[in-house]
Simulated scan of single mutants.
Amino acid sequence: MLPSAPTASAAPDDVPGDAHFDLARARARLAADALTADWQLSFVSETGSTNADLLARLGALTRVAADADPLSRPAQAPRPECLVAGTQRAGRGRQGRPWQSPPGNGLLCSTAMVVEAPVGSLSSLSLVAGAALVTALRSLPLTAPERIALKWPNDVLLDGRKLAGILIELAAARHGRAALVIGVGINLRATPVATPPAVADRAAGAATDAQHATAPTAPSALSALTARSALSRASLDELIAATPDFAGDVLVAWLVELARSIALFERAGFAPFRDVWWRNHAYAGQAVTLFDQGQPTLGGIAAGIDETGRLLIDDGTSVRPVSSGDLSLRLSTQP
């Protein structure tokens, strides 16, 4: 287990009544699965950032004497640990964009683990996590789960709008192992209709680059895939209340699929995920434009991904591989 973090502003396991999250049930379900039987799970009602909390714990753990280094001695590696927060004051996504979600509207969690993989292979890990998240969400009893898709490199969409985001941060890497944190934010409920569009975008971490944004698009949420998707906020509260552990079901599905996917990645790398990921890419075969700091840098057809997870763009003269970096991807028909 990782050392405790002083940054969380609520004691672990402080689960508020409106969280719709049964911590004991989630722990029992993880313990019942062989892949997650030894995983740790904790909850704080409020913190700055679950990623930052777990990175601090991993950092303290990896700054140790060589004979106690968990990256050189697998037997001393900490068990994977997931930290869930009711709300975050400083949640963030790619490129440092803020990720904010009203309490109860989203599932905000991070998982710290040591992955058996050389540092050179980690560039594809965000795509592996994305494929795992889509598989997990599609396994839930939702209407039309096929409407959930991927967007390169690490977003999950519902009907073309942002449903979830993934942020992977590295604490240390050596001896063919990496200590890292995988953070996810999943929109469970839609932002209330009265919220201005620009605020709704920020609340879901879906803000566009300032230089490129014209009309922000409100994010999506899993509630859109329930049988009562057109309900008002009040009715949706009733729906989730009638599903005693809505957030817990999403969490456990995600963690179990993440464990399965990481185990496969450690054995076989990105290869088993490549075709599956591309089949679920929302923009596969479509005209796209890449932006860097809000400025268009490359346009063409999204033609595939290579063996390291780079996006392949056919610009009409050649197929060019693009790394994740600080690039963002838009359909060419979008403003």
Rank of each mutant, 00 (worst) to 15 (best):
P3E: 13
A5Y: 06
A10E: 12
D14F: 09
G17A: 15
D22G: 09
A24M: 07
A24I: 10
A24S: 14
L30T: 04
D33P: 02
D38P: 01
F43C: 01
S45W: 10
S45G: 11
S49F: 02
S49V: 01
T50I: 07
D53C: 14
R57Y: 00
L61K: 03
D67C: 07
P70K: 09
L71N: 05
S72F: 05
Q76W: 13
A77W: 09
P80N: 07
G86A: 06
T87R: 14
R89S: 15
R89G: 13
R89H: 11
R92S: 12
R92G: 03
R92D: 01
G96F: 04
W99H: 03
Q100T: 11
S101K: 05
P103T: 05
C109I: 00
S110R: 03
A112Y: 09
A112V: 09
M113Y: 00
A117P: 01
G120C: 09
S123A: 15
L125W: 10
S126K: 04
V128P: 02
V128M: 04
T135V: 04
L140G: 08
P141I: 09
L142W: 14
P145F: 06
R147S: 10
R147P: 08
K151P: 15
W152M: 12
N154T: 09
V156P: 00
L158C: 13
G160W: 05
G165W: 02
E169D: 10
A172E: 13
A172M: 06
R174L: 08
I182Q: 08
I182S: 12
G183Y: 04
V184N: 12
I186F: 00
I186A: 00
R189T: 07
A190C: 11
V193N: 07
T195D: 06
P196F: 10
P197E: 13
D201V: 12
A203E: 14
G205H: 01
A207N: 10
D209P: 02
T214Y: 07
P216Q: 08
L222Y: 05
T226R: 10
T226Y: 03
T226D: 08
A227L: 11
R228M: 10
L231H: 13
D237N: 13
A241E: 13
A241M: 04
D245F: 04
D249W: 01
A253K: 09
L255E: 02
E257S: 13
L258C: 06
I262S: 06
A263G: 02
A268F: 06
G269R: 07
P272H: 11
V276E: 11
N280K: 05
N280Q: 14
N280L: 07
N280S: 11
A287T: 13
D292E: 14
D292G: 04
D292L: 15
G294E: 08
P296Q: 10
T297D: 06
I301K: 12
A303F: 01
A303K: 03
G304Q: 03
G304S: 06
D306G: 13
D306F: 05
E307F: 05
E307Q: 14
L311I: 02
L311C: 04
L312Y: 02
T317V: 11
T317G: 14
S318Q: 15
L327I: 12
S332T: 15
T333G: 02
T333H: 10
P335M: 10
P335K: 12
